[in-house]
């Protein structure tokens, strides 16, 4: 989902920075509030960031014969809500842009929007919805992480399609074209991300499995 350095026209690059900025500012404020009000949640916040750091470094082969990577933003979105992931995701994207020439500074706004904003918000929405529908924690976490991952890659497809409409079939044709590259490749990887998120979430909740695990993780309940 990394749009490479210099590959978005200037207006698009600036536009995506504008769209992402308020989310990142809100994320910083939320992050500061969490650290101030529940300092015991710091460990888990860092773990949520570490999970994104880890998963977005793993490029996995897929059924389309190409490689892509999960995003790891679902875990933090489920535990802390989507806002904090805009900040944690941006840190990961900055690391990759500066040290790996993967993604870029000019495309950071667009990449933050897909990976650190849309993905986490979809994960969080799915998590809440699954909870209302009576799904177990494991099932809800699985679908939250999986669908958030897919949403990130679909967003990248739309962003590229807006910048590079197909010469004959326009933007819809371009969405299909980029979606064919990203979304189809991502399908099995999104399932893997869902599985890994369930395993890590359970491992992080320690032996506190019986109570509301997620509240423990948030540091809401000081056990």
């Amino acid at each position: 989902m990394h749009i490479m350095e210099g590959f978005l026209p200037v207006e698009h690059a600036v536009g995506w920075f504008g769209v992402s900025a308020p989310f990142v500012v809100a994320g910083v404020m939320r992050l500061r509030r969490i650290v101030r009000e529940r300092p015991q949640a710091k460990m888990m916040l860092a773990a949520a960031g570490a999970f994104t750091f880890l998963l977005s470094a793993l490029k996995m082969p897929s059924v389309t014969g190409s490689c892509s990577h999960p995003t790891g933003t679902g875990l933090g979105a489920v535990v802390f809500g989507p806002a904090v992931m805009s900040v944690l995701g941006m840190i990961v994207l900055l690391f990759q842009a500066l040290l790996l020439a993967h993604g870029g500074l000019t495309t950071l706004g667009a990449n933050v929007f897909s990976m650190a904003i849309v993905g986490p918000w979809v994960s969080w929405g799915v998590w809440r919805l699954a909870g209302k529908l009576g799904a177990s924690i494991a099932v809800a976490v699985f679908f939250a992480a999986m669908l958030g991952d897919l949403a990130t890659y679909m967003t990248t497809s739309v962003q590229l399609a807006l910048a590079y409409p197909d010469l004959s079939s326009g933007i819809p044709g371009a969405i299909a074209k980029f979606g064919g590259i990203f979304a189809v490749t991502q399908l099995p990887l999104a399932i893997v991300e869902g599985l890994l998120t369930v395993v890590v979430m359970n491992a992080l909740s320690g032996r506190a499995g019986k109570v509301d695990e997620i509240q423990v993780l948030c540091g809401e309940v000081n056990r």
């Binding site: 989902m1 990394h2 749009i3 490479m4 350095e5 210099g6 590959f7 200037v10 490029k59 082969p61 897929s62 059924v63 389309t64 014969g65 190409s66 490689c67 892509s68 842009a97 500066l98 020439a101 993967h102 870029g104 500074l105 000019t106 990248t156 590229l160 590079y164 197909d166 010469l167 074209k177 980029f178 590259i181 990203f182 490749t185 991502q186």
Partner: peptide, 30 residues
């Protein structure tokens, strides 16, 4: 499931440079 297993990111950029051969990235990684 055959393929070169190159990055999907690179494939997308290849599609762009194919359909817009004259496009020059306006910024290079630092």
């Amino acid at each position: 499931f055959q393929g070169s297993f190159r990055g999907a990111d690179d494939q997308a950029m290849a599609v762009i440079t194919q359909s817009r051969p004259d496009y020059q990235p306006w910024f290079q990684p630092l």
